[in-house]
Write a protein that binds this DNA or RNA. Structure first.
Lengths: 254, 254
DNA sequence: CGTTAGATTGAGCGCTATCAATTTTTGTGG
DNA sequence: CCACAAAAATTGATAGCGCTCAATCTAACG
């Protein structure tokens, strides 16, 4: 919890990109220079950018959780992506003229508003970073595919279990969940909008998982009590997160 | 139907990319040169590439329909993407070492197996094509987000309606559905795996849409009888397909 | 210590799943 | 061109997972 407040960009982003390519000291210096961009802050529940806006900057999350979401005319909302520190909210989206979705803050979010040219120069000057960024985008796409699998084929318990295990891995990979317990600021309504269920059923399912000793969720914090059992229940397959670095092997917890 | 057989790469891909950037005659020549790559053919139901494989080539569909799908250990299958002629099945995926999903042929598929260097050179030599390709990828990601919205928040009728309208637009954009009727080779089981429903319920829902005069589906062909009503039912918002070209405006059929 | 957002509980319903059979279409060989 | 086999579509009956509505309880906050 307090660790999340000390998380800075070079930690989260650098650590994450290190997963994809070994970066030189010069690469890391270039990444740290991103911190020269203006740092903005949005309150929980506020939007970083709304559907229809013309995206003008690239947002690099520095602290806090955010989500990508879409609305239906009938008011229903679906969260289609989650961002933790070190994630780019819209690395490429600025290329499309109109955003087809919104990005909202879940907890208080601080992010760097990077002018597109800054990214373009970074990619041009430091090709290895460019490759890592592409890699990172491909992993995001992979996560989206797994979410489709979840919404289409997993039941309530499996949906929540899979989300919990995924976020555990993602948060741990930036160094914020070493002990299996971490900040998890989604409300049960947010969870419902993520898993395509109702808040009521989300609540009941969480209670089940809790009573079975799989998780421990309270006050915006999630504890993974039994990772193996939870992963089994979720039919979690670590492959889609592509956590292994190029050239290395990782025995999937699956 | 017979028109689909005469569809060649420069038509489908060129036409599609034209939506994103005005291409020069030289650009089009470069695109046509992609046809020098080996043309492969796979039978319906066969895989172009399976989960776990190391993708070595980029597949550019020339004719036929294919799908991207994932499996759960319990046997359930989710189709997470559809490909029509002119679509790249895996423009960038070859960068990740292991494919986290499979790509299967729905109808007989012919595709160009492009060595990665061919794409890299194309992007390098013809930056405008490179931009159009990036654009194309972003649209694919946008479609995935809409599918998440569908699976999370739309009911059975809305799911099918949205898929039908989307595919109508996509097929029409490559010139294969001018009259509102087009080849649609998904079986009802495929549709079920796409919409996250059972084949039985898919069947019953299709019958409803048929009886209400919205669609006409028979023998691997889909007719859109009432686009306006179908779009309304689906709460279809054309924006996510980004069909409008840079600098132009399109009054969304929505 | 109100005020309010979020979490929890209860009851009843309905959309979609499941199981199982039958009919129709498609494809193939005689 | 017909007969047969296999795939796909269709129908019927029943069950259940998750939704809806509505109330209550709890925690966060000024």
């Amino acid at each position: 919890m307090e660790t999340s407040m000390t998380m800075t960009i070079d930690h989260a982003l650098g650590r994450k990109l290190e997963r994809f390519a070994r970066l030189s000291e010069e690469d890391h210096r270039a990444l740290r220079r991103l911190r020269e961009a203006p740092l903005r802050e949005v309150e929980p529940r506020a939007d970083l950018i709304a559907e229809g806006d013309e995206p003008a900057v690239v947002r690099l999350s520095e602290s806090g959780w955010a989500c990508r979401y879409k609305h239906l005319p009938n008011g229903r909302r679906q969260i289609v992506g989650l961002f933790v520190p070190g994630d780019f909210c819209d690395l490429n989206v600025y290329i499309l003229r109109h955003l087809d979705h919104s990005i909202g803050a879940i907890s208080k979010v601080r992010y760097y508003a990077l002018p597109p040219h800054m990214i373009e120069e970074l990619v041009h000057d430091r090709p290895r970073i460019g490759k890592a960024l592409l890699w990172n985008e491909l992993v995001q796409a992979s996560i989206q595919r797994e979410w489709l699998l979840t919404l289409g084929q997993r039941n309530a318990r499996e949906r929540l279990a899979n989300l919990f295990v995924e976020m555990f891995h993602r948060v741990r990979s930036i160094g914020l969940a070493g002990d299996g317990k971490f900040e998890f600021p989604l409300t049960q309504t947010d969870l419902a909008d993520t898993t395509g269920m109702t808040p009521v059923h989300t609540n009941r399912t969480i209670q089940e998982l809790r009573q079975e000793g799989l998780i421990d969720m309270d006050r915006r914090h999630l504890g993974i009590c039994d990772l193996a059992a939870l992963s089994r229940l979720a039919m979690f397959n670590a492959g889609y997160l592509h956590l292994d670095r190029e050239g290395e092997t990782l025995d999937a917890a699956n």
